[in-house]
């Protein structure tokens, strides 16, 4: 693989909304096991077609990661661990307004997440 201009492209991500969403996610993850009712909503894609989506397992994973159940978080969706670490990081680095990341990072992350879930549910 050669590192062409496409792979060198970078994108600016503003952090305010991610910080708010991350804080809400952490609060939800800490509260969810204490609340009555189901621990998350069924994935519409998986309910309709049997095929999991890249975000499948994220409720389980984020909830487990927030309670330091690292193994369970890894098994459900490793991205949950990343999301929890990032959400904490955003709260610590509160002054940071934006970050430059490689443009391929997010699409690549979603592809890895999807492959993980497809394998977990035996679709591949």
């Amino acid at each position: 693989m050669t590192a062409g201009p496409g792979l060198r492209a970078r994108t600016t991500v503003e952090l305010h909304d991610l910080r708010v969403a991350g804080a809400a996610m952490l609060a939800g993850a800490l509260l969810l096991p204490a609340l009555p009712g189901p621990d998350g909503l069924p994935c519409p894609l998986r309910s309709l077609t049997g095929i999991p989506c890249p975000l499948c397992g994220m409720t389980t994973s984020v909830t487990a990661a927030a309670h330091f159940h690292i193994g369970a978080a890894m098994a459900a969706n490793p991205a949950g661990l990343v999301a929890v670490v990032m959400a904490v990081g955003l709260l610590v680095a509160r002054r940071r307004r934006a970050v430059d990341v490689p443009a391929w990072l997010l699409p690549a992350g979603l592809v890895v997440m999807w492959l993980w879930e497809l394998a977990r549910f035996g679709a591949i």
Binding site: T11, V13, L18, A21, L41, L45, L55, C56, L106
Partner: peptide, 18 residues
């Protein structure tokens, strides 16, 4: 937007035009 666990909604979190 809601079919893959709402990924289409979360997209605005990192989209340059939200």
């Amino acid at each position: 937007s809601s079919i893959p666990c709402g990924l289409g909604y979360f997209w605005m979190l990192w989209d340059s035009e939200k």
